[in-house]
């Protein structure tokens, strides 16, 4: 029991004294996962919207693929990204394995289907007549798409936050493609795994608490946004 109480005590001391190593890891996590989320937002919202608004052969298969992608296991993504970025792999020339860029890449691969799937559902949930109404108001196609995106802004925001929540808490891919290099590719989750392994429960708990707080903030915003939506 002592070990837990002592751990929690140490954890709060590390957090409130703004321990440089803990802060560095937190900041790096936010940068990496934030960048990955922005990439997934650009790709996910645009592709999700395009798939929702157009009809083409094989559309159903594409939708099932996107929905499957929402549950991609991070370790599988980590494995494939590692293989691709390996020195003599297809993308080996980039020489980014074990750099923050490779973690961003892996996390973007994980988050994009999540954002895409939720965006697709959000756009499909808009009233079917809305597109015609917007066109009838004299809109160009670009204006129409933009107005639809604005209409679906709340669920689209949830999509982006779900993507961020998915990657900030992911460990498998980050450790495989990043390598958990101190001060370079060590993020909250990989550091927690390592410190726990070494028996440094105080640091592990401090990192764990920060991760929990981040997850709590994201989920609170998500819940707030979803609850604000009117019942239909």
């Amino acid at each position: 029991m002592d070990i837990i109480i002592e751990g929690i005590k140490q954890a709060f001391i590390l957090i409130f004294t703004l321990d440089p190593e803990v802060m560095g890891i937190t900041w790096l996590s936010l940068k990496i996962s934030g960048t990955a989320t922005i990439i997934s937002m650009v790709l996910g919202v645009s592709t999700g919207t395009a798939v929702a608004l157009t009809r083409f052969p094989g559309r159903r298969i594409v939708i099932s693929l996107i929905n499957t992608g929402m549950g991609l296991p991070p370790v599988v993504v980590g494995l494939f990204v590692t293989v691709f970025l390996w020195r003599n792999g297809p993308l080996g020339f980039l020489e980014i394995l074990y750099t923050p860029a490779s973690i961003i890449l892996a996390q973007a691969v994980i988050a994009t289907p999540i954002v895409m799937g939720i965006s697709l559902a959000a756009m499909q949930n808009l009233p079917p007549g809305l597109r015609l109404q917007i066109l009838a108001l004299g809109a160009t196609r670009i204006q129409m798409v933009w107005m639809l995106i604005k209409e679906a802004r709340l669920p689209l925001l949830s999509a982006i936050m779900a993507g961020f929540g998915g990657v900030i808490s992911e460990v498998g891919a980050s450790i495989m493609v990043g390598g958990n290099i101190k001060g370079y590719t060590r993020v909250l989750t990989t550091a927690t795994v390592m410190e726990t392994g070494k028996g440094n429960f105080d640091i592990a708990m401090a990192l764990g608490i920060i991760l929990l707080v981040l997850a709590f903030i994201i989920n609170s915003i998500l819940t707030y946004v979803q609850q604000r939506e009117r019942p239909r």
């Binding site: 007549g129 809305l130 015609l132 109404q133 917007i134 108001l137 004299g138 809109a139 204006q143 604005k150």
Partner: peptide
Amino acid sequence: LAMVFQEPLLFDTTVFENVAAGLKIR
């Protein structure tokens, strides 16, 4: 032209902004 459908199909904003929508598009 202008068209009104059976469903009001309003945008999730104020009444004023809705009525202005077509003019803003222009």
